[in-house]
Design a protein around this nucleic acid. Structure first.
Lengths: 141, 141
DNA sequence: TTTACTGCAAAGCATTTGCAGGGCG
DNA sequence: CGCCCTGCAAATGCTTTGCAGTAAA
């Protein structure tokens, strides 16, 4: 199934184009299931399996990136965004972070490991303020 | 179910202690399913549901960290390790990286967001050398 | 015509949940 | 004695796969 990859990006299927267009217009990370629904809203209906297959191709092509959540759900977005996160282990809330100190490292790794790096993810885990307060007062979630 | 959290770490259940002991002795990241098998090998049998429930508690307590893979499987380890990864989008191979330039940022975020940060994950995605070669010669996987 | 893409439905898999029994304080 | 922990099995939810029809070159 990995026919479209970073070495064979001559053409994309119609489905891939639609999904890529959607991701670009949204400019945020979204799940495959939500992509399916969103396309339906835009009258660009597409089977769920096709959504997954297209995302896989775009991912391998290096234009789409993925962040997999703790519940097994994956969020897809275009790679141009450099958004990292601060995630609460208790309630799952996820705050975006603007800072990113790892670009230099990325370049070094590219050289050192001969890895063709498309993107990176950086995520911090802990307990958010409201969950801290909730627990301080004895309640939860 | 979140009774044991970072504010109520007075005691751990027997299951939690066993799992924590296992993780410490292994000193590497391992899946819940494999923890289940490994405990069985050590004649410390435990239901799979209990493995998950205990991991959840240890995670909330801040002594165990998680890294969720693209296939939805999660790898658990004790937090003392500062291991990050370089992962191939094609074959899934995951190389550990020693460098970590984000400790300063972690501390800043702790202050700025009043988040109680336990740990962070940093992962680079791309195509590994062998997959690059495989594709260059026209084959795959 | 030939090949690859697509949709649907079924299957796969890690994880979660319901519930009854058992252990510990 | 009571509450929490535990185990089993069923359920859940996201993702993948099989297969036949369809669109494109």
């Amino acid at each position: 199934m990995a026919r479209q990859n970073y070495l064979m990006k001559t053409q994309r299927t119609r489905s891939q184009e639609r999904i890529l267009g959607l991701l670009k217009s949204l400019n945020r990370a979204i799940s495959a299931q939500d992509i399916y629904i969103e396309l339906r809203n835009r009258s660009e209906n597409m089977g769920l399996a096709t959504v997954y297959r297209s995302l896989e191709a775009l991912k391998l092509e290096g234009v789409v990136q993925v962040r997999t959540l703790g519940n097994g759900e994956s969020l897809y977005s275009t790679v141009q965004q450099d958004r990292h996160h601060l995630t609460c282990l208790q309630c799952g809330a996820s705050l975006p972070i603007d800072q990113c100190p790892v670009h230099d490292l990325e370049h070094q790794l590219n050289q050192a490991y001969k890895f063709k790096i498309f993107y990176h993810t950086l995520e911090f885990f802990g307990i958010c303020t409201s969950c801290q307060l909730a627990h301080a007062s004895g309640t939860e979630g």
